[in-house]
Deep mutational scan, measured.
Amino acid sequence: KKRQCKVLFEYIPQNEDELELKVGDIIDINEEVEEGWWSGTLNNKLGLFPSNFVKELEVTD
Rank of each mutant, 00 (worst) to 15 (best):
L42N: 14
V54K: 02
R3D: 08
F9H: 15
G36S: 11
T60L: 13
I27D: 03
T60Q: 14
L42M: 05
P13L: 00
F9W: 11
E34G: 12
G24I: 09
N52D: 13
D28P: 02
T60Y: 05
K22Q: 06
F53L: 10
E34D: 08
E32M: 15
K6S: 12
K1C: 09
G36R: 07
D61E: 15
L42F: 03
N15H: 11
D28E: 15
C5A: 15
E20L: 10
E34F: 06
L8M: 15
L57I: 15
V54D: 02
T41F: 08
K6F: 12
F9S: 13
Q4T: 15
D25R: 05
D17K: 04
S39C: 13
G36V: 03
K55G: 11
L42W: 00
L19I: 12
S39H: 12
E10R: 11
K6G: 04
K2T: 06
P50W: 02
Y11G: 01
V33L: 10
Q14Y: 05
W37R: 06
W37A: 01
E56M: 10
K2F: 05
S51L: 07
E16T: 14
W38T: 03
E31H: 03
E20M: 09
G36C: 05
I27W: 00
Q4K: 15
F9V: 13
V59G: 13
E58P: 13
V54E: 00
E35H: 08
Y11N: 07
L57P: 05
E18R: 01
N15F: 05
G40A: 02
E56H: 03
E20T: 06
N30A: 08
P50K: 09
V33S: 10
K6A: 14
I26P: 01
D61K: 04
D28V: 08
D61T: 07
G40E: 01
G36I: 03
E10L: 01
E56F: 06
I12F: 13
T41Y: 12
D61Q: 13
L8A: 07
K22H: 15
E18L: 03
L19G: 05
D61M: 11
N44D: 08
G24A: 01
E34N: 07
K6T: 15
K45G: 03
E58M: 13
E18S: 01
T41M: 10
I26W: 05
K6L: 15
D28M: 06
S51V: 12
I27F: 04
T41P: 00
V33M: 14
L19M: 07
L8H: 06
G36A: 07
L48M: 11
E35P: 11
L8G: 11
N43A: 12
E34I: 09
E31F: 04
K55Y: 06
L21P: 00
P13E: 02
N43W: 03
S39K: 15
G24W: 02
Y11H: 08
D25A: 07
E31N: 13
R3I: 06
L19V: 03
E34K: 15
Q4W: 11
G36N: 13
I12Y: 14
V7Y: 01
V7F: 01
I27S: 03
Y11M: 00
G47M: 00
C5Y: 11
I27T: 00
L21N: 07
E56K: 15
C5T: 06
I26M: 07
N52V: 09
K2P: 08
N43I: 00
N52T: 13
L57W: 05
D25I: 07
E31S: 07
N30E: 15
S51Q: 08
T60P: 15
L57F: 11
K22M: 03
F53H: 14
L57Y: 15
G47V: 09
L57N: 02
E56I: 09
V54F: 06
N52P: 09
D17P: 04
F49Q: 00
I27R: 00
L57A: 04
I29T: 04
D61N: 08
K22L: 00
L42R: 06
D25N: 06
N15C: 08
K2R: 07
K1A: 08
E32T: 11
L48W: 10
I29G: 08
N52F: 09
G47K: 01
I26L: 09
S51W: 12
K1L: 05
E32R: 06
L42G: 05
Y11F: 02
F53P: 04
D28K: 08
E35T: 10
L42A: 06
R3Q: 00
F9C: 08
D25P: 06
N43Y: 04
V23W: 08
V23G: 05
E16G: 08
G24Y: 04
K55L: 08
E16V: 10
V33E: 10
N30R: 10
N43M: 11
R3Y: 04
D17S: 15
T41A: 10
W38S: 05
E34V: 12
L57V: 09
E56A: 07
E18W: 01
K45Y: 08
N43G: 12
Q4Y: 15
E34Q: 11
W37G: 02
E35D: 11
P50A: 00
I12R: 09
K55D: 08
I12G: 07
G40T: 00
L42H: 09
Q14M: 07
P13Y: 03
T41K: 09
P50M: 04
P50E: 01
D25G: 01
K1F: 07
F53I: 15
V23D: 02
E56R: 10
K22D: 10
E10H: 02
N44V: 01
S51R: 07
T60A: 06
L46C: 15
E20A: 13
C5H: 00
T41I: 09
E20H: 09
P13F: 06
K45W: 00
L42C: 10
N30G: 09
N52E: 14
E20K: 13
E32N: 02
G36Y: 08
S51E: 02
E35L: 05
V7Q: 14
G40N: 02
I26T: 05
G47N: 02
K1E: 04
E56D: 05
D61P: 14
L21K: 00
L46P: 10
E10N: 12
V33G: 05
I27Y: 03
K45A: 01
V7T: 00
I27G: 00
G40C: 03
K45H: 12
K1M: 10
F53K: 12
V54L: 02
G47F: 01
D28I: 09
T60W: 10
K2S: 02
S39L: 14
L8E: 12
N15Y: 04
E18T: 01
S39I: 13
N52Y: 07
G40Q: 00
I29W: 02
N30L: 14
E31M: 09
L46H: 13
Q4M: 15
E32L: 02
L8W: 05
R3L: 10
P13W: 01
N52L: 08
V54W: 00
N30S: 11
E58F: 10
K1Q: 08
F49H: 04
N52C: 14
N43F: 11
W37Q: 02
L46Q: 13
D17Q: 08
K6Y: 15
V7C: 08
I26A: 00
S51P: 06
P13K: 09
V33F: 09
K6H: 13
V7K: 00
N15K: 12
F9A: 13
K45D: 04
E56T: 12
V23S: 06
C5S: 07
I27M: 02
D28G: 04
W37K: 03
D28L: 06
W38H: 03
L46E: 15
V33H: 06
N30M: 11
G47C: 00
D25H: 02
G24M: 09
F49K: 04
G36F: 09
K2G: 13
L19H: 02
D25M: 01
V23Y: 11
P50R: 12
N30T: 06
E58K: 13
V59F: 15
V7G: 00
E16M: 15
F53M: 14
Q4L: 15
V54A: 04
T60H: 14
L21C: 01
V59W: 11
E58Y: 12
V23E: 04
E32K: 10
V59S: 15
T60S: 12
V59H: 13
Q14L: 06
G47S: 00
N15G: 10
Q14G: 07
R3G: 10
